[in-house]
């Protein structure tokens, strides 16, 4: 007991050290609170200071991230300073991020975007990529614009296993209507409240599933659940190589619920300039469904990192 007291009293020097350490902590914390420690990460502090940096975002699935990476390298090639904020989430989230200035640019799918921005889905008579593009121009969120769209298409699909297809003799989504009451559908959680999702399926095709399982956006969870029978119908992207590998069958969509889905850059107008739009237009002109599918397979199947796949793609297409 006495020792402890002595120890305390005699250790003025170490107390001083402690106080200094405490002071340092306070300063560090104050810096942390006041001037954002991740300043280069956020652009929260004003934004004007970093007006030249283009923040590129992506949705939470590999294809979106791969194209975003390609955009990033294209812009870097033009000497534009970019910052990557990939894997943000579903459209509901990243559109908000675009509007609040967290990101400036990201790859979009024209039909899905149109459908998301119009109440009750795309207007009648809109189905070709050009019609979708034109319709989109009227409804884009304020302060954003789209650049030229590419020929590359990646549609949302409803996909089943070969066994399910044979069992119910399904060829199109229409065939699902009478049997959907026995089937479980799986997709990203956002699918249940999207028009290009359960709502449109019910309105346009009269399809109501027995159950909906929220999984992921056309990723391994959905594929896995399809193949192990947890779900019978899955929302899979048409460019996904898993369709071929797993012998899956894509159901036709005669009513065009899932519209033309051409990939195009969506950008905040304040960040757009001639150099940026020229560079991205040149890139989009080279992007096709085929070369995108091949590049994506390198990421999804061969597990190469998207940065080197993107680089290889740009080099092969004379863009780098």
């Amino acid at each position: 007991m006495k020792n402890r007291l002595e120890g305390t009293m005699m250790n003025r020097r170490s107390m001083l050290g402690l106080a200094l350490a405490g002071g340092a902590t306070l300063t560090a914390a104050a810096c942390g609170g006041g001037e954002d420690p991740l300043a280069q990460e956020t652009a929260d502090s004003g934004g004007a200071a970093e007006a030249s940096t283009v923040v590129i975002g992506s949705a939470n699935f590999p294809e979106s991230e791969l194209i975003a990476e390609m955009y990033a390298q294209v812009l870097e090639g033009e000497g534009v300073e970019v910052q990557r904020k990939f894997n943000i989430g579903a459209r509901e989230v990243y559109l908000k991020a675009l509007q609040d200035g967290s990101i400036d640019l990201l790859p979009e799918y024209n039909g899905a975007l149109l459908s998301a921005l119009v109440d009750g889905g795309a207007p009648e008579g809109v189905s070709t990529p050009e019609q979708v593009y034109d319709a989109l121009q009227d409804v884009l969120p304020e302060g954003t614009e789209t650049l030229q769209q590419s020929a590359a298409e990646d549609k949302d699909t409803l996909t089943v296993t070969a066994a399910t297809q044979a069992k119910y003799s399904l060829t199109s989504i229409e065939d699902l209507a009478p049997v959907a009451g026995e089937l479980v559908c799986g997709a990203g959680p956002e699918f249940q409240e999207r028009y290009q999702g359960l709502i449109g399926l019910e309105e346009q095709y009269g399809v109501t599933f027995k159950e909906f399982r929220p999984l992921d956006a056309g990723g391994p969870l959905t594929i896995g659940a399809l193949t192990d029978g947890t779900i019978q119908v899955g929302n899979v992207f048409s460019t996904d190589s898993a369709i071929e590998t797993n012998d899956l069958v894509v159901l036709q969509d005669p009513k065009n619920l899932f519209l033309a889905q051409n990939i195009l850059p969506l950008i905040r107008s304040s960040k757009n300039d001639q150099a940026i739009s020229d560079a991205l237009d040149a890139f989009s002109a080279k992007l096709t469904t085929e070369n995108l599918t091949q590049a994506l397979a390198k990421v999804q199947v061969d597990k190469q990192d998207s940065a080197s796949v993107a680089k290889e793609f740009l080099t092969a297409n004379g863009l780098a």
Binding site: P189, E193, P214, L221
Partner: peptide
């Protein structure tokens, strides 16, 4: 659990996040 497609109260969080609700 909800992140891997199961049920539970996490559904409210994961779905709410996906739907920006």
């Amino acid at each position: 659990a909800a992140y891997t497609g199961l049920s539970g109260l996490g559904r409210l969080l994961v779905d709410g996040l996906a739907l920006n609700d």
